[in-house]
Design a protein around this nucleic acid. Structure first.
Length: 476
RNA sequence: GGGAAAGUAGGGUAGCUUGGUAUCCUAGCACGUUUGGGACGUGUUGACCCCGGUUCAAAUCCGGGCUUUCCCA
């Protein structure tokens, strides 16, 4: 953890080096598209996922654990679904040397095994709504270039939620609840986003409609960081998941599913990080505070400094702050660099100078410096957390807005796509959508929920009046 | 989907044309001196992607595989 990081302008190199140097992921596992979480990376992941799963718990979901293996007959039950996944499923064909009677898929997502069980679990309207989730590994045989946290063959943190309801409207409302949950989650991470309805040709296989959450990466490309699907009765009819409604009749349930993967980690890294490494909201940072003693020759003075540091460490820990006292035998500068690389929210320095006035130097991850009296450190640290968090959220949001432009002329489209998101007028016709994608470097993400059209009132392709604004972006 | 390049200690590299003792930086370990932005000295550990071929001899030449990176669609 001591080499120079490439500048963030060279995003691809910066991203790969940061993963390695900050000890988030080790990409050296000898198989394509599968990677290893380092201990620090796992801690970061746990910070993020504890919040995400806690939010699901609070919103009335129950956690479950489903098998990895899906018998082929189950996966193939819903026609559109299997068609959408058949090119990227890993198959288990043998048990030892013996070929299996029925091959089994490594789950690419869990709709089919879950709904197999829903059929057994759901009897009547009193069993509804059913709201469950799990955080699981899923496998997809990506043929395009794999990239850690972003395009993987083994996704190691897929939070997938699945719900069943007694009516279509209730399912639609659940999709809205899911989007609200994701909005709150990404606000907590300080990751700006746009929520759009995916166009017909890009919705989840087997869904009635799909909403997606996208953020903007430093290289100007869109990263899909969440999806929510209204599945209607497509799966419940295929899996025979029926309930007895209040009129005493059997009726297929109405379903939704929604998911977030470890791309949320890629997003929080990429949006906030800088040339020195990770920058994280204080809640997210695995280590929130590092205490660095500055020692000179005098043994007696050194003992006093160490004593003060231990006192501060104890009070912060008692206050619930994730604090590390770095008493290793290295120079202070080296400790600063390491703490910055891993996004430690702030550091506290205690040296000879600070003993006299009984206050420590406090420097946050964005470089803001202040002083804290030894006996007021806890209060001061909480204040610095607040100002750090609001500053980095504001900077991120500003960067997102600055790189979103409106375009009403084809000639401006590709240049604008170099920078980030582009909003265009779109009449909503599928052929116009495809044309826009064919003629540009970007993909049509979809129509944002509740957003002003900003004067983009004619379709970029056909010129007819456009009710909708569509987001276009280069994608991962 | 198509094309190109590259794999040498934990990381980054030299050597490959013309086969023969593998270079340097960094990190690690031990000891000592240090410590307000990546300390220094001395000692030391550690590598030629895999399989096969040619050869007295292969990091180097040939074939196959795996992996990675970049470009185009």
């Amino acid at each position: 953890m001591a080499d120079d990081l490439p500048p963030k302008e060279e995003f691809s190199e910066w991203y790969n080096e940061l993963l390695f140097q900050a000890e988030i992921m080790d990409v050296r596992y000898p198989a394509q598209g599968v990677y290893v979480w380092y201990p620090f990376g796992q801690k970061l992941r746990n910070q993020v996922y504890d919040r995400l799963t806690g939010m699901h718990d609070d919103a009335g979901h129950d956690e479950v654990g489903f098998p990895v293996l899906i018998p082929e007959g189950i996966l193939a039950k819903e026609g559109e679904h299997i068609a959408g996944f058949e090119d990227e499923v890993f198959w288990v064909t043998h048990g030892g040397r013996k070929e299996l009677d029925e091959r089994m898929a490594m789950r690419p997502t869990s709709e089919t095994p879950m709904y197999t069980m829903f059929d057994l679990w759901i009897r009547s309207h009193t069993d509804l709504p059913l709201k469950i989730y799990q955080v699981a590994n899923i496998w997809r045989s990506e043929t395009e270039h794999t990239r850690p946290l972003i395009r993987l063959r083994e996704i190691t943190g897929f939070k997938e939620a699945h719900t069943a309801h007694a009516g279509y409207e209730a399912a639609a409302e659940q999709v809205e609840e899911a989007l609200d949950l994701y909005r709150e989650f990404y606000r907590w991470l300080g990751v700006p986003f746009v929520v759009t309805e995916r166009p017909e040709w890009d919705k989840f296989p087997g869904a009635d409609y799909t909403y997606a959450v996208d953020t903007l990466m430093p290289d100007g490309r869109a990263l899909q960081i969440g999806t929510a699907h209204n599945l209607g009765q497509n799966f419940s009819e295929a899996f025979d998941v029926e309930f007895e409604n209040q009129d005493g009749e059997q009726e297929p349930v109405y379903q939704t599913s929604y998911g977030v993967s470890e791309r949320c980690i890629a997003a929080v890294m990429s949006v906030h990080g800088d040339d020195n490494g990770l920058v994280l909201p204080s809640d997210v940072a695995p280590t929130q505070v590092v205490i660095v003693p500055v020692l000179f020759g005098d043994d007696e003075e050194n003992d006093e400094i160490m004593e003060v540091c231990r006192g501060i460490e104890g009070r912060l820990r008692d206050a619930g702050v994730r604090v590390e006292f770095d008493d290793s035998d290295r120079s202070p500068g080296a400790k600063y660099y390491d703490a910055e690389l891993q996004g430690t929210a702030l550091r506290i320095e205690v040296g000879p100078r600070d003993l006299e006035d009984e206050s420590a130097v406090v420097v946050d991850r964005l470089g803001n410096e202040s002083e804290a009296a030894f006996d007021e450190v806890v209060e001061h640290v909480e204040d610095v957390f607040d100002s750090l968090d609001s500053e980095l959220r504001k900077t991120a949001q500003q960067g997102f807005e600055d790189r979103t432009t409106d375009v009403d002329d084809y000639g401006d489209l590709n240049p604008a796509l170099e920078d980030g998101f582009v909003r265009v007028g779109w009449c909503g016709a599928e052929e116009c959508g495809h044309s826009i994608e064919d003629k540009s470097d970007g993909d049509l993400l979809g129509v944002p929920k509740s957003e002003e059209d900003g004067g983009l009132d004619s379709c970029l392709e056909c010129g007819d009046s456009a009710d909708d604004v569509a987001y276009v972006a280069r994608t991962y």
